[in-house]
Amino acid sequence: MTVGNFGVVTRRTVLGASAAACATSAIPRAQAATPAKGDDAMVPVALRINGKDHHLTLDPRTTLLDTLREHLRLTGTKKGCDHGQCGACTVIVEGRRINSCLTLAVMHDGEEVTTIEGLGSPEKLHPMQKAFVVHDGYQCGYCTPGQICSAVAVLDEIEAGIPSHVTHDLNNVAFSDEEVRERMSGNICRCAAYSNIIAAIRDVAGEDKA
């Protein structure tokens, strides 16, 4: 059981092995400002990523996405557009999925980040990762980590009763293919494995209900 970020207790253990790290981060926040001087003002940033603490010194312009990919070499999180238009960079921060391209690492100082690497490994796949393989929920694989992070969070959001654009009764949120399609629409797949991705998510949601 994990405590989701939406104020409800969910039974879904979406974060797999790193779920235990979902509690509020214990790492102290770094100093809150850059010196008021020139171009090389760097900022200290502490992040807990996939359960592991990282203390970095960054150009404040560094996005969370580039921090992951270039500084921490966690390249599972992808850069598709770098402008919040595709969803390939989706990661889970403090229990919520966000576009890591449109946020600065320094804005997340002291926070908990789960990336695709934190969900599972080739040797030990997260149930959602396994379902994507079984249902061929990808082709080129480039949007895939974002789709999977999003899918994991979407099931949490439905369980937490967060409504969506297609929820008929705002006060009665339930799993349906239509709900998942709408909620996953921030993750573009140009290869268009859409039908298969929905099948994979449906599969995981069903397993969880059993």
């Binding site: 919040g84 966000i98 576009n99 946020t103 979407v154 959001e157 969506s164 654009h165 629409s185």
Partner: peptide, 19 residues
């Protein structure tokens, strides 16, 4: 204020609305 919920949910994506 259902119209406000509906308007918000019509905007952007789940990831962007979280932020």
């Amino acid at each position: 204020y259902a119209v406000l919920s509906r308007a918000l949910l019509a905007g952007a994506s789940g990831q962007l609305r979280n932020k």
